[in-house]
Nucleic acid binder design. Structure first.
Length: 548
DNA sequence: AAAAAAC
C-alpha cells in the first residue's frame, strides 16, 4: 500500500505540460532520434529512478555500466532515499511471489526480469517509459490486480505485455516445474485487428525465445484441438467470442491461466460483450490469477463492473479519465444535413491535406459508399475497412494502411479503438460519434506517442442534442469551442442517468472517488478559464488510489 | 440512444 504512495509521488507532478513531454519520450529512437536523445526525462517527470525500467534495460544490456545509467538522470542524487523507502514498503505489500527479497534494487533484479525480455525491449528502441508504463508495470510485477486508465497512444499494450512475460519467466517448454499445463496468459480485445496488433507487439518481446504466442482464430483454434499442442501454449490473444466458442466446444481449458488482461475494458464490459467476457473469466479457475483492465475511457458503470472482477485492485489514472490528449487539436464543423456532408468533404479534399487520414462513418454501408464516392471524385488511394468485409479483405486493408499505401481510410467503429497507425495526422468524424467514449477513441487514432494530430467532427441538425457533451470534451482537452454551442441546453435525460449511477455507487469506496472526480470535472466545465488549474489539482488525487 | 463488433 505504501509502496504505491511512492508511485503516486512520482506521478503527482504529472500534469498537462509534463505529460506532453513524457509522452514524447515514448518516441521510438528509430523514427525521431534527435528527440529521444535529448529529452530531459527524469528532470521533467520526476520519475523515481527505480521505476525507470527502460533505462535499466539499456544498462542491463551494457552490463549496467555505472556511468551509463546515471549520466542521463538528473535525479540520481535522490536515489538512495527512494531506494530505502521502496525497500521498506516492499514488506508492507504482501510478498506474493515469495521471493523474499534481495540486495539489489534494479527493477530487473527486484522483479527477476528475464534478460532476453530486457534486451528485446532495448532492441525495439523503447527508451523511456510513459506514465502508464512507469506506474502500471511495477504494480503488475508485484502481482497485484490493476485498473489502468491512460489516454490513447500512451503505450498501454507494453504496460501489460512486459509484466506478463516477465512473470511467466520463460516459455513453458523450457520450464520444468510446477507451472502446470495449458495456457498461462490471456489478453482479450474487442476487435480482430486490435488482437492482431497486440499479437505483433507480443512477438517483438518474444524474439530469441521459444514463446508460443497464439493469435486465436478459427484456424489456430483447430490446430489446438489436440491437448498436447494446447499445453505448450504460453499466451493467447483473442476476441472474446472466439474464445467462448472454443470453451463451449470443450477444446480449450483455461484452468492454468495466471494472467488475464481486458484491453479496451469498457468496450469489453458493455452489454454485448459482457456475458462472453464473464464466461471467459469464470473458466479461468486458477486461484492465483492476476487480472487487469486497461482503457483510455472507463465510464462509472464499466468501472464498477471492472472493480467487481478484480481482486483488491490498484487503480491508476494517467492524465484525465475520459479526456483526449491536448496534443490533438479538435474542431467541430456544421454541415446542416447528411446531403451536405459529401460536398463539404470534397471541398476539404480540394485543399492540400496530410495523408494518411482516417474517416469514421456510422454504418458499414455508409463506409463502403463514401469510399466509392471519394474514389469516383478522383481522390487517390482510398480504402475501406469494416467488419462486414471478409477476414482477408480486412487484413489486406490493414496491411495497406501499415505500408502507407492507403491515403484515405474510411472505416466504422471497428477501427475506433486501439489501432496504432503511426502516421495518421488527422481524423475526420464524417458521422457524429454515438458516445463520448467513441469520440475519444476515434480521435485517439491520431496524436499517438507524443506526435500531434488533428480531429474534425461534422455535425448536422440531428446531432445537435449530443453536440454539447462532445463540446465539453473539447474544452476539457484544451481545444476551443464556439460560444453558442456551450449555450446549448443540456442533454438532460443523459445527465440525470449518469447522476443516478453516481449516487448509487456512493456506497462503495471505489465509486466515491468517481463521484468526486465527476464533481470536479463539472466544476471545471463551469470554471471556464480556470479549467486548467483545476485539472492540475485533480491529477495527483486521481493518479493512484486504492479500491475496495 | 444506437450502431458495430464478437463466431
Amino acid at each position: 500500500m505504501e509502496a504505491f504512495q511512492l508511485l503516486s509521488r512520482g506521478g503527482a507532478r504529472f500534469h498537462k505540460q509534463r505529460f506532453k513531454s513524457d509522452v514524447q519520450l515514448f518516441t521510438h529512437a528509430v523514427t525521431k532520434p534527435e528527440k529521444s536523445v535529448n529529452a530531459p526525462v527524469n528532470q521533467d517527470s520526476k520519475l523515481p529512478p527505480e521505476l525507470d525500467f527502460f533505462k535499466y534495460a539499456q544498462g542491463g544490456r551494457a552490463k549496467r555500466k555505472a556511468g551509463n545509467t546515471d549520466s542521463s538522470s538528473s535525479s540520481a542524487p535522490c536515489r538512495p532515499d527512494v531506494r530505502n523507502k521502496r525497500r521498506k514498503t516492499n514488506h508492507a505489500t504482501e510478498d506474493l511471489d515469495g521471493n523474499g527479497d534481495d540486495g539489489d534494487d534494479a527493477p530487473e533484479d527486484r522483479y527477476k526480469i528475464p534478460h532476453h525480455l530486457m534486451s528485446n525491449l532495448l532492441d525495439n528502441h523503447y527508451k523511456y517509459p510513459t506514465g502508464v508504463q512507469a506506474h502500471g508495470m511495477p504494480i503488475l510485477l508485484e502481482r497485484r490486480d490493476l485498473a489502468a486508465i491512460s489516454p490513447t497512444g500512451t503505450g498501454k499494450t507494453l504496460s501489460y505485455l512486459f509484466p506478463i512475460m516477465s512473470l511467466l519467466e520463460a516459455p513453458i517448454s523450457s520450464l520444468k516445474g510446477t507451472e502446470g499445463n495449458g495456457v498461462r496468459a490471456i489478453v482479450l480485445a474487442p476487435t480482430r485487428e486490435l488482437a492482431h496488433q497486440i499479437y505483433n507487439e507480443c512477438l517483438k518481446l518474444a524474439v530469441k525465445r521459444k514463446w508460443r504466442v497464439v493469435l486465436y482464430s478459427k484456424a489456430t483454434a483447430s490446430t489446438l484441438r489436440d491437448k498436447n499442442a494446447r499445453d505448450k501454449v504460453d499466451i493467447v490473444i483473442s476476441t472474446p467470442l472466439r474464445l467462448v466458442a472454443s470453451i463451449q466446444e470443450g477444446n480449450l481449458d483455461l484452468n492454468n491461466v495466471r494472467h488475464l488482461v481486458l484491453d479496451e475494458a469498457d468496450r469489453l464490459l458493455d452489454s454485448e460483450f459482457l456475458a462472453q467476457v464473464q464466461e471467459v473469466i469464470s473458466t479461468c479457475t486458477h486461484p492465483e490469477i492476476q487480472k487487469s483492465v486497461f482503457s483510455a475511457t472507463l465510464p462509472a458503470g464499466a468501472e464498477q463492473l471492472a472493480m467487481g472482477i478484480l481482486r483488491n485492485p490498484i487503480r491508476i489514472v494517467v492524465g484525465l479519465k475520459d479526456t483526449p490528449l491536448p496534443l490533438i487539436s479538435q474542431t467541430v464543423t456544421y454541415v446542416a444535413d447528411d446531403a451536405s456532408k459529401l460536398p463539404s468533404l470534397l471541398t476539404y479534399f480540394a485543399q492540400p491535406y496530410n495523408p494518411p487520414l482516417l474517416i469514421f462513418t456510422s454504418t458499414q454501408p455508409r463506409a463502403t459508399s463514401l469510399a466509392e464516392e471519394l474514389t469516383l471524385n478522383g481522390i487517390a488511394n482510398v480504402d475501406c475497412l469494416h467488419a462486414g468485409m471478409t477476414k482477408k479483405e480486412r487484413d489486406d486493408a490493414v496491411s495497406r494502411m501499415r505500408r502507407g499505401e492507403s491515403w484515405v481510410m474510411v472505416s466504422t467503429e471497428v477501427m475506433a479503438r486501439g489501432m496504432d497507425f503511426k502516421g495518421v495526422r488527422e481524423v475526420i468524424n464524417y458521422d457524429f460519434p454515438t458516445s463520448v467514449q467513441s469520440y475519444i477513441h476515434r480521435i485517439g487514432r491520431t496524436g499517438r506517442a507524443g506526435r500531434d494530430g488533428k480531429a474534425v467532427t461534422y455535425f448536422t441538425d440531428e446531432d445537435a442534442p449530443y453536440l454539447k457533451s462532445i463540446a465539453n470534451v473539447l474544452l476539457q482537452s484544451g481545444s476551443s469551442v464556439p460560444d453558442w454551442i456551450l449555450k446549448l441546453p443540456k442533454p438532460s435525460k443523459l445527465k440525470k442517468k449518469q447522476m443516478g449511477k453516481i449516487k448509487r455507487a456512493e456506497t462503495v469506496n471505489a465509486a466515491r472517488k468517481i463521484g468526486r472526480n465527476d464533481a470536479i470535472k463539472k466544476r471545471a466545465m463551469i470554471a471556464g478559464s480556470k479549467r486548467r488549474k483545476v485539472k492540475e489539482l485533480r491529477a495527483p488525487e486521481e493518479l493512484v488510489s486504492q479500491s475496495r
